[in-house]
């Protein structure tokens, strides 16, 4: 038996080429569409590059990066993106947890109806999510018509027309789209907790809230971490929703780093600076999500 296993699992060290050969197409594609562009982009960020890169201009060293530190708008976009990320993830987690607990307690028949309906937002393009919410937030639109009945108008909640609340509006639109994802993952996580734990806690006289905080949450920690790595990262890349909902306005209050770099590259046609900005965006992404990722990775290897 031992010998047979060896025939099947020839290791890399013995000069076995088949695994490498099988991985070759993936590695090749990733080289072309990921590794090489990243290196090329890093290289370009040290140059003055006009539109389309047809004219790679002078080497200007780190000036594109220095410019970032004097560009207050660019710094603001980073802050906006981080705020968006925190708000979006916090809401996703909270609403997702409530939804998952609820779905778990539901009778099976009702759950079977709710679950497919719930996945619809997941399948809608983020661009269209932004568009739908733009219609909802319209000053003469449905939201203000509803709020009018309880006496809330544009003065109390200025929506997307004021820099104070516009980012919140984008965050709410993101909740609509992503909360179902959290519900699905967290429901599966809840199902993985053995029923005995709950029984034991119940016998010991713990109430439902106490059970949730003492048993459910600690056991779900890993699921939360994974969700954070798999879905939380996307919040830092936010582009589509904002593109349709506010186009970055008013007064750049919803401008995300991706959106700003896009505008620098394709509206103002300064691709060198846009590249420097997007490299900074990547560094921010690694700094923010590197820690949960490393934590997660270490856990699953050992």
């Amino acid at each position: 038996m031992k010998k047979k296993q060896k025939i099947f699992y020839l290791s890399l060290e013995k000069g076995d080429l088949l695994p490498m050969l099988l991985m070759a197409p993936t590695i090749l594609i990733m080289m072309v569409v990921m590794i090489f562009p990243l290196l090329y982009g890093l290289y370009l960020s040290f140059f003055k590059v006009g539109f389309g890169g047809a004219t790679v201009g002078d080497f200007i060293g780190v000036q594109n990066y220095i410019r970032f530190f004097s560009d207050t708008t660019a710094q603001k976009t980073i802050v906006n993106t981080l705020f968006f990320s925190v708000g979006a993830i916090a809401g996703d987690m909270l609403l997702g947890t409530i939804g998952a607990v609820l779905l778990n307690k539901m009778s099976r028949a009702l759950g079977n109806i709710c679950r497919p309906l719930m996945t619809i937002p997941l399948l809608v393009s983020p661009l269209i999510v932004g568009l739908i919410w733009r219609y909802i937030y319209d000053p003469s639109g449905i939201l203000y018509w509803l709020l009018g009945h309880v006496g809330i108008g544009m003065e109390q909640f200025p929506g997307t027309s004021s820099s104070a609340t516009a980012l919140l509006c984008c965050i709410i639109a993101q909740w609509w789209e992503v909360v179902p994802f959290y519900i699905i993952v967290l429901t599966a996580g809840l199902l993985a907790i053995p029923e005995d734990y709950y029984e034991a806690a119940y016998v010991d006289g713990a109430g439902p809230l106490r059970i949730f905080f003492r048993i459910t949450l600690p056991l779900m920690k890993n699921v939360y971490m994974t969700v954070l790595v798999v879905s939380g990262v996307d919040t830092l890349k936010i582009f589509d929703i904002i593109y349709a909902l506010t186009s970055g306005g008013p007064n750049n209050s919803t401008m995300s780093i991706s959106m700003y770099a896009y505008n620098q590259a394709f509206v103002i046609s300064d691709m060198g600076y846009a590249m420097a900005l997007s490299v900074i965006a990547m560094v921010v992404s690694f700094l923010v999500f590197g820690i949960p990722f490393l934590y997660n990775n270490r856990k699953s290897i050992t």
Binding site: M34, P37, G41, G53, V229, V230, K237, M271, S278, F286
Partner: peptide
């Protein structure tokens, strides 16, 4: 492999646009 998810789309998109253009 999951590290790839952390790379923002825009960071890959601009150089890819230039490459495909050329």
């Amino acid at each position: 492999l999951l590290l790839g998810k952390m790379v923002p789309t825009i960071t890959v998109m601009i150089p890819l646009f230039i490459m495909f253009n050329q």
